[in-house]
Amino acid sequence: MTETVSIAPAAAPKQSSNSVFSHAVYVVSENPVTGLAFGLFALIALCALIGPYIVPYDPLASDTAAALQAPSWKHWFGTDQLGRDIFSRVIVATRLDFIIAITSVALVFVMGGFAGIAAGFFGGWTDRVVSRLADTIMAFPLFVLAMGIVAALGNTVTNIVIATAIINFPLYVRVARAEANVRREAGFVQAARLSGNGDFRILLAHILPNIMPIMMVQISLTMGYAILNAAGLSFIGLGVKPPTPEWGIMVAEGAANIISGEWWIALFPGAALMIAVFTFNLLGDGLRDLVDPQRRT
């Protein structure tokens, strides 16, 4: 009747596929840091996807004649003790580190996210069991716990993924629990109940999508943390075994040579690690803006 007239029909939304894309363009252009983060992320993803096909040398091929060469046009990042090309190894390693991070974060997102939402929504015994479990994990020094898990379960990539997921579990539980708890009494949850939604459908269809923006920040932060954790485990000799190219091992191998002047062996994989973690930490804000419907005006 009256108050609807003021809004012209021309203001109707554009087609949704188009508006999602234009929203992404808006988010990136609004904040240059987000643009930088998305750019770096695209670079890392590209290395992970096609890295092994574009590198100039075989990352495993040793050439003792060319050992310990400083960076040059021939070997951009120099060579290590066995004469392997460090540039090729850094690029190829991206895929392994990336896979470890993504699978462990996906695993912990499903486990921790769901347990946390259920704890926040149902309260009572569900909450007590889940929260105490999270508290118990938090009671250990997390990196030592991860070491213990990998040492006990066996020295494989799968176990690194599991260990990384377990140590991140409390972070997801706490965020998801707090967010679900706030929304438990919200009007739209009551309304959903009146519409005939059961508890599980309310959890998955109504509450989960609403806490996705904050979970996105969490995912992005733990991605960086997961990469660091996987590299850390490899650095101390757990998890990935040499000669597989992996940033943590490469830093460990190069660490001994820094004193003798061959700084490039440890520096470049370390820098790659730093850039990856930095990218994921920056990415959080951008991802949140991207999935938040409030920003999609």
Partner: peptide
Amino acid sequence: RKRIQMVFQDPTDSLNPR
């Protein structure tokens, strides 16, 4: 459930933002 329904106080809070 179909036969009893409700209109809530706060129209913003009672609609799922997503």
